[in-house]
Each structure stands twice: as structure tokens, then as C-alpha cells.
Design a binder for these strands. Structure first.
Length: 412
DNA sequence: TCTGGGGTCCTAGGACCC
DNA sequence: TCTGGGGTCCTAGGACCC
């Protein structure tokens, strides 16, 4: 089905930043976070947030990323807690990708702290005669020298193997990693066979549970299962995928992410909110942020989604797709308000989180659309509103994001 | 111990069109 | 008169990743 003509093995690297947010927090505040051996990044000790990253010293106390901060500080009360430096995150990630692009034509930024590179052709031309590990060391040194960020490099013939190779690459005390680990062509299956299923990307908690019910915990358990049995247990698609990854097979290409699919903002309140008025106020601030992000990145959106997380953690969402893509607060606000009302009509309990997201993104704004229905016309952006929004953007650019607040502006 | 915020991708059902 | 299937778009929910 898959597997086109057997082609030459690829040379893939994954550059993965070591405790990225710890490195960033230290960079942002060298005197404070920079000096704290015991450091937790994610939010203040009182916040309702979770640990985004923590130093290895803090991890010795049992602190893990994803853990509520409130719990983490109980495990390690001496630790310093700082928020994620968001702006620095984006800036540094872009800097890193720029360095990587000098070494490989194809760079795929998979997350702020990870990027894949396909060096297949480069290894046969520019780096002819050198090993992939050797080249990885060179790239790693360049990234640290030019951005100040330490990365580890996993390498292999696929993204899957490169990703799995990053773990042993990490230079942690006692692990023996020197920052680079490359799985040689032909060694993929043996390398993957040592792992637990939970270590495979894509096998999360729910899937693990499903597999454990059949007594499958390790990769080798699945390798031993006949394909037909996998299909009966998991369905065709999932079975094929699992069959392949358990043997270290992954054909997915390294692809530059061209365009984002959605842009959104969400907020967990310090305390749950019951009041519709308050919820709407929070909603409109998020709409303001999302629309200004859209304009900043040069996108317009056709679909607006509002989501609520109720106090009992039930997550609900409502969406509406418009005929015309929009970019302004003026156009998005009435749609978002209506969606919120819809959600509140269905279930009126205190809310813990509210979120707004824009999807169905198109580049720029669409001018001169076809005739619209009356109610669509009301939501339609006028040129004047776009100008106003652009004016707001430039004020914010000069004086900062919070220099203009909603309510300071006329609606029309 | 009380569970973030930014995303991507997948599924399933219904509407609608041909 | 009744039966049908495929394709696309939309919505809601959920798993997963870092």
C-alpha cells in the first residue's frame, strides 16, 4: 500500500532543545532565574497552571512537566517559579530554524523546541564522506554558538527514528549522551524493539490503555502479533500504522509548515466564573487578541470557534463558518458572542476556561465579495473598520500590546 | 494534587448536491 | 414510485504533542 519503489535511505536529523523553557527563562532573567538551580517554568506558585519545564535538579524531587504547579511546589518548596517568556520563545525558535536552514534545504519546525531536517541530498554532495553524526555535531555547535541555545540531535532514516534517538542523545548526568545519537540504516527495527509502546510518539494514555487490555506493553509484544489480529483489534488504519512504527518504519516526509491552520487564544481564570456578563467581557478580550494576531500575521479567518471548559472539566465548543473571511474585532465579536450564548444555553454552570480560535485561514483579506445576505452584511467588515484596526495595531507596535484596551475605541 | 496554552489531526454524522 | 451512492462542506468532540 505505502512503500513506493525502495529508494535510498534518508538522512534525517531532529534538533531538540534541552529543557528549552528553562534555558529561555534564564536568558530572560540572568540575575534571577539564571542563578536558580531549582527552577520551575510555567507560572507563579499560586497559579492554576502546570509545569512547562523544570531543571534536572528539580526533577529529582519528582517534579515532571505537565504536573500542576501547586503540586510541584509541594514536592520542591525551595524552587523558584517563573512564567514562560512567550515573546522570547517565538524569537529564539525562529533564530534556531534560520541556523538550521543553512545546513539543510528542508527544515520542519515541529514545535517551538523541535525541528526536523532532511539532509539526504546534502550528505551525498556537500558532506560527502562524512558521517551523519559528525555533521550533527557541527550543526549543534553552530546553533549554540549563534543562538545561545543548547540542542540535542537525534538521527536516522526517518522522522520517527530521529525522534526516538533524541532521548539517548541528551547529555544528562549518568546517561552518557554526548548531544548526538544516530541510528544507522538497517538498525531501525532493533532500536525500536527495545522500547515500551508508551515511548512511541502517537501512543498516548488512551491508546496505551487500549493496548494494555490485550496485554501489549512493549514494542516487541506488538511485533509478535499477526497483522490480521492487529486489524481486528484496532481497525485497518491504526493497525497499519502500528505495524509499521513497531518496526521503525515511517515514510512521512520532512515538510516545511507552509501556513498555520488555526490561530487562537484561551484563558483559564484564577477562579471559575458563573456570570454571563463577566464571561462575555473575557471573551471580547480574547477576540481582540485573536484578531490582532490574525492581522499581524496577515491572515483572515472564515471559521470562529468558542470553547468553554466547565468547572467539572467538561470541554464544549461551538463553531460558525462565515461566507467571508474576517480580520477585525468588529466582525468577530458578534459571532463569538452568539456562540457563547449558544453554549451557555445548553449548560449553565461556572466556567473554568474560555477560548476563541480562528480557522479556515486565508492569506490577507478578501475584497469585493459576492452579494451577501442581510445578516451577513451586518457582520461584514468595512474598509473603515479595517483602517481603524490597522491604526490600533500601529499604536500597539509603538507603545506595547496593552497600550490600547477595549472600550477605549468607538464601535463604528 | 487538582489538572495550561498553543496547536494538529482524525472521526462521525448530517446537510446538500449531482 | 422508490431507491442509491459518492463527494464536499460543516459541526462537535476527542486524542495527542510539546
Amino acid at each position: 500500500m505505502s512503500a513506493p519503489a525502495r529508494s535510498r535511505p534518508r538522512s534525517i536529523l531532529l534538533a531538540d532543545c534541552d529543557v528549552y523553557y528553562v534555558q529561555l527563562a534564564r536568558m530572560a532573567d540572568p540575575e534571577g532565574a539564571g542563578r536558580a538551580r531549582l527552577l520551575i517554568v510555567g507560572g507563579s506558585a499560586e497559579s492554576r497552571g502546570v509545569v512547562c519545564s523544570a531543571t534536572y535538579e528539580v526533577r529529582k524531587y519528582g517534579v515532571r512537566s505537565g504536573m500542576p504547579i501547586s503540586r510541584a511546589v509541594k514536592l520542591c518548596p525551595q524552587a523558584m517559579c517563573v512564567p514562560v517568556p512567550r515573546e522570547l520563545t517565538t524569537r529564539k525558535s525562529e533564530e534556531i530554524v534560520e541556523v538550521l536552514k543553512r545546513f539543510a534545504p528542508d527544515v520542519e519546525s515541529a514545535s517551538p523546541d523541535e525541528a526536523y531536517m532532511d539532509l539526504t541530498t546534502t550528505m551525498e554532495t556537500v558532506y560527502r564522506g562524512r558521517t551523519l553524526a559528525d555533521v550533527a555535531h557541527m550543526i549543534r555547535a553552530a546553533v549554540e554558538r549563534e543562538t545561545g541555545i543548547r540542542v540535542s540531535m537525534g538521527g536516522g532514516t526517518s522522522k520517527l527514528v530521529a525522534k526516538l534517538a533524541v532521548e539517548p542523545a541528551k547529555p544528562r548526568d549518568g546517561s552518557g549522551g554526548d548531544g548526538v545519537y544516530v541510528v544507522a540504516p538497517g538498525e531501525e527495527e532493533a532500536f525500536v524493539a527495545r522500547l515500551k509502546l508508551a515511548e512511541i510518539p502517537g501512543i498516548g494514555p488512551k491508546f496505551q490503555e487500549q493496548l494494555a487490555k490485550r496485554g501489549w506493553f512493549d514494542v516487541k509484544d506488538v511485533v509478535a502479533v499477526p497483522r490480521e489480529e492487529l486489524e481486528r483489534a484496532l481497525g485497518e488504519r491504526t493497525a497499519e500504522w502500528l505495524h509499521d512504527v513497531a518496526r521503525g518504519i515511517d515514510d512521512s516526509p520532512v515538510q516545511q509548515r507552509e501556513e498555520p491552520k488555526s490561530m487562537g487564544c484561551e484563558e483559564t481564570f484564577p477562579r471559575d466564573i458563573m456570570s454571563d456578563v463577566e464571561l462575555e467581557r473575557e471573551l471580547l478580550q480574547l477576540v481582540d487578541r485573536v484578531t490582532s494576531d490574525l492581522r499581524e500575521e496577515g491572515y483572515a479567518a472564515r471559521t470562529v470557534t468558542v470553547k468553554l471548559k466547565d468547572s467539572d472539566f467538561t470541554l464544549r465548543s461551538a463553531a460558525r463558518t462565515l461566507d467571508e473571511a474576517i480580520t477585525t474585532h468588529h466582525a468577530m465579536a458578534p459571532v463569538a458572542k452568539e456562540l457563547l450564548k449558544q453554549l451557555r444555553r445548553k449548560r449553565r454552570v461556572a466556567a473554568r476556561l474560555i477560548g476563541v480560535s480562528a480557522s479556515h485561514l486565508v492569506r490577507g483579506t478578501i475584497e469585493g465579495q459576492l452579494a451577501l445576505f442581510e445578516d451577513e452584511r451586518a457582520a461584514r467588515e468595512t474598509e473603515k473598520q479595517r483602517e481603524l484596526a490597522a491604526a490600533m495595531d500601529s499604536v500597539r507596535e509603538k507603545f506595547g500590546r496593552h497600550s490600547l484596551k477595549l472600550g477605549m475605541l468607538p464601535e463604528k
